[in-house]
Nucleic acid binder design. Sequence first.
RNA 1: GGUCCAAUAGCUCAGUUGGAUAGAGCAACAGCCUUCUAAGCUGUGGGUCGCAGGUUCGAAUCCUGCUUGGAUCACCA
Length: 594
Amino acid sequence: MIENILNKKICLALNDIYNINVNPDIILVQQTRVEFEGDYTVVVFPLLRYSKKNPEDTANDIGEYLTKNLKEVKSFNVIKGFLNLVIDDNFWIDFFNLNFNNDNFGIKPQEKSSKPVVVEYSSPNTNKPLHLGHIRNNLLGYSVAEILKANGKNVVKVNLVNNRGIHICKSILAWKKWGNNETPESTGMKGDHLVGKYYVLFETKYKEEVKKMVSEGIFNEEEAKKNAPLLLEAQEMLRKWEAKDKEVIDLWTMMNDWVYKGFDVTYNRLGIDFDKIYYESDTYLLGKELVNTGLKNNFLFQKPDGSVWADLKDKGLDEKLLLRKDGTSVYITQDLGTAKLRYTEYNPEKLIYVVGNEQNYHFDVLKLILEKLGENWFQIIHHLSYGMVELPHGKMKSREGTVVDADDLMDEMFSTARKTTEELGKIKDFSEEKANELYNIVSLGALKYFILKVDPKKNMMFNPEESIDFNGNTGPFIQYTYARIQSILKKAGNSNNIPDYDGIKINKKEKELLKLLYQFPEVITQAGKDYSPATIANYVFTLVKNYNKYYQEVPILKVDDNNTKNFRVLLSEFIANVIKTSMKLLGIEVPVRM
RNA sequence: GGUCCAAUAGCUCAGUUGGAUAGAGCAACAGCCUUCUAAGCUGUGGGUCGCAGGUUCGAAUCCUGCUUGGAUCACCA
């Protein structure tokens, strides 16, 4: 990178001019702000204590040294304590020449024999359909996996489906009681929605029961909640499930299959996938052994009732239950087991969990317990903690029906895409099939970009009353720019010769574009370090915004000079390529026409 | 109550390890299609970067306190 070259040369300059050695870290080289002349800026304030001169003189000293000793630096200017360096156009043209043709520009080659990075995401419960919160999780997980791949990592995408437990029994019980043998086929409902319907029904009936019990005056609310017959029945069903009771297992298998099929449809439509799917029914017993060994080694302790605990008070946390007095395991016990399983299964470089920030405490505890158990690899665990999707009235709550359903949302986006496209009337020659494909690409582009452009760590707002925009800083805007370029390329034909670079003069806007393109590999690196699709999204938006200005103001095909025309066409193609790559990292497709 | 996170334009969000006059989009208003796709471009207005201190050449960014909002502190997952 040119920044590094400048940094090193400035070190040499300081040595030559002032006869001092400085830590390269204190030399700050950054992009020059657009309102000033220059490409890179050196902030000289930190260097004054070494130069023992005022900012202007110090900057001039270094500027002169660099123009003399570095062919890339053409000239410089000094404003206040800022040394603005102008890079020779040939540097940008060389960069263009070397990379415009590279379809994989910015993508690092896969590291050979590198340990895999395991990314867990999605991890749904099979008692209700996916909602907007899951969409954020899924999109983040998928995109982060793509970004890590682009950084040369060997990525394994896994999903741990939570298919057992009391909440699943609730759906099953409600269906058994009031379902009249409804099936996805008989009702035409998607399986996950059908099962979700019975989960909601259970909650409704359960609440009625509790209310009734309280009004009868025998129980207070808390007791009623624990003793409602429906709940007891569900708990009994869970015990039967654990005892492998055939009737329960059969029901469970059937209803889970409905849900899996429903999820597959949603996943497919969202364009996400997994290399491996774990089921909690297979993993929920893991971890017991780990805990028992820990107990034997006195890393853990047992209470008089026989329950097993980890004491985390020395870490500033509390005690944490790991095995109930009856020896059954809890959620975290299972997670300890699956973490260990993955560690031995993959020998990974990192274990990444895409899980909401509501579970921050859980992951802190998880790591501390693993450490306590002597599992020193615990440090490879990274909780990719993302913020909640909030609605104007607050958080989404399944039980209160304030969720934005994933399938519904995609349907709505699809209709909006169709409506907008029809109004614009640009694809009247498309077959219905091709048109639908486009609506799909555009609607998903809008949805995905809307979610991924926000910093994963932050909570985000979604207002169901306002449809997701198609103008401005949006997926369709970026897709549109790509399509525009494709149109230009089509009109330009295949006859573009490689331009004669000696004859090329790049204008200011072209230089800005080349500088942005130059940054792309670094952007991918940064996005990988931060696990942040938003970094990519913001970058590609800036690139596209700049290109649209260029497109508006600079003729590309309508220039007489063939050399200039070829250069502009190829520059456009280069940009389209980077748009496509960026969007791919976000899991978004780009259309040739729209 | 303890712990953690957040607070930037009317709304939704950017803002790299502290650097120049804090940026986009939406919404509002005013312009630009006989010219490469107007899902676009140009312009105008819009800010006590939650509040108060501190650190220093320099703070939206780091530290302390406070206010507000959220999460969490289950023998739920």
